[in-house]
């Protein structure tokens, strides 16, 4: 009987650990995605301002090495090479395909898609600088949310699981 209880307790602990991990995941993925956006924008700047690379190539190049953004930017670059693609639509579609972004993140990044490629290099620099500042702000929020809710939720779930196990035993 005791063996069954110990096995049940272990199963409950395993399940609560998995549940806690799942609860924390959106916070973690959001932080990682925004960190990638930060790096992406910093890599995009010289490609646009200095190399004056066409946007399709620039987004592909700037996305290289980024876990979440590389495939999404690669697909966007491919779509932009098709002359019937409308940039704003393709950009918003790319944002929808990205994991980890929250409701408040998308309008900021969507706005960048509206101004990208529509002005000279100086104005593009200003737009990209503004986007970097906004992403920095979102990233600060995301990190705060992760340390506040993203750690509290798993702790609560874990504590409940532990209580159930103690009561069971």
């Amino acid at each position: 009987m005791m063996v069954l209880r110990v096995m049940g307790g272990a199963a409950i602990l395993g399940a609560t650990w998995d549940l806690a991990r799942r609860a924390a995941r959106p916070y973690e993925v959001r932080v990682r995605t925004l960190e990638e956006w930060q790096r992406f924008l910093r890599q995009l700047m010289p490609l646009i301002e200095w190399k004056r690379m066409a946007l399709a190539g620039a987004v592909t190049e700037a996305g290289r090495g980024l876990t979440y953004l590389e495939p999404a930017m690669g697909r966007l670059g491919e779509r932009l090479r098709d002359r019937d693609t409308e940039l704003r639509g393709a950009w918003d579609h790319m944002l929808l395909s990205l994991p980890g972004l929250w409701g408040e993140d998308r309008p900021v990044l969507s706005e960048l898609g509206r101004v990208l490629g529509t002005s000279d290099a100086d104005h593009q620099h200003n737009h990209l600088e503004a986007a970097v500042r906004e992403v920095d702000r979102l990233l600060d929020d995301a990190r705060r949310a992760r340390s506040r809710d993203g750690r509290m939720l798993p702790a609560m779930v874990g504590a409940i699981g532990m209580m159930v196990v103690i009561l069971m035993l």
Partner: peptide, 13 residues
Amino acid sequence: IEVLVEHSLYARV
């Protein structure tokens, strides 16, 4: 025009 400049006006200004 947007398509002719490949959505990259900065490169053709």
